[in-house]
């Protein structure tokens, strides 16, 4: 990233909302919300299940499109430019390709970015950050849920993105492991200057991040609050 880019916000949302049709009636998953994410931000986003956290993350990552409002990525470009590369997403559900090994899964974003040199080395390095080098040759179905989540995190950071969005990244690990994972992620973000946006139920995890957003019945509050779980 250059200085000009750094001076721009990564994501700017103005009255962004998202509604779905469900059983013939409209459901507002995200009520009009305004927010901004800058380089280096570390944001925890909390809320009950079904409060709209994941939907908001998908909107910010460019995977989903808002029903109304303006959503832009001033420092990153258009929606088509976001993935792979500038924004990386770690999904809540298992998202490793079952027919690729752990190493190949982690190296996949690099292949999608067209990186030709030392993909495996970089992937091993990313796995190493989470202590998973030994699993490089395994298939996703041979991993535990927690291992798969950490592999997915390694895949998220391998391409050196500007913003990492993670949906419940420690949902399937014990607290100690979860804390260690978050330490690793934050250290990596500090070193790379990337922003983090993490949805979590875990107050301890949320407390590790300087900014806290709250989602409640689709409404976003960007002021720091204690989590209401």
């Amino acid at each position: 990233m250059n200085t000009t880019q750094e001076s721009q916000a990564l994501v700017v949302g103005k009255n962004v909302s998202r509604s779905f049709e469900q059983g013939g009636t409209g459901v507002q998953a995200v009520a009009p919300a305004s927010f901004e994410i800058a380089f280096g931000d570390r944001i925890a986003i909390a809320g009950r299940s079904g409060s709209g956290k994941s939907t908001l993350l998908h909107l910010i990552s460019g995977i989903d499109i808002p029903s109304a409002g303006d959503l832009s990525w001033p420092a990153l470009g258009t929606r088509e430019d976001l993935r792979p590369g500038r924004i990386a997403v770690m999904f809540q559900s298992p998202s490793l390709l079952p027919t690729l090994s752990v190493l190949e899964n982690v190296a996949l974003p690099l292949a999608l970015l067209g990186v030709a040199v030392d993909r495996d080395g970089k992937a091993l390095e990313a796995l190493g950050l989470f202590g998973l080098e030994d699993l490089a040759g395994k298939l996703p179905e041979e991993l535990s849920g927690g291992q798969a989540q950490r592999v997915a995190l390694a895949r998220a950071i391998v391409g050196q993105p500007d913003l990492v969005i993670a949906d419940e990244p420690t949902g399937q690990v014990d607290r100690a492991t979860g804390t260690a994972v978050m330490e690793t992620l934050i250290s990596w973000a500090e070193a790379s200057g990337a922003a983090l946006l993490i949805a979590t139920h875990d107050q301890a995890i949320a407390d590790r991040l300087p900014h806290g957003w709250q989602m409640d019945h689709g409404r976003l509050s960007t002021a720091r609050q204690e989590m209401a779980l």
């Binding site: 490793l96 974003p109 999608l112």
Partner: peptide, 8 residues
């Protein structure tokens, strides 16, 4: 779908 979500 995963590939597409990753940006393929």
């Amino acid at each position: 779908a995963i590939l597409a979500a990753l940006g393929a």
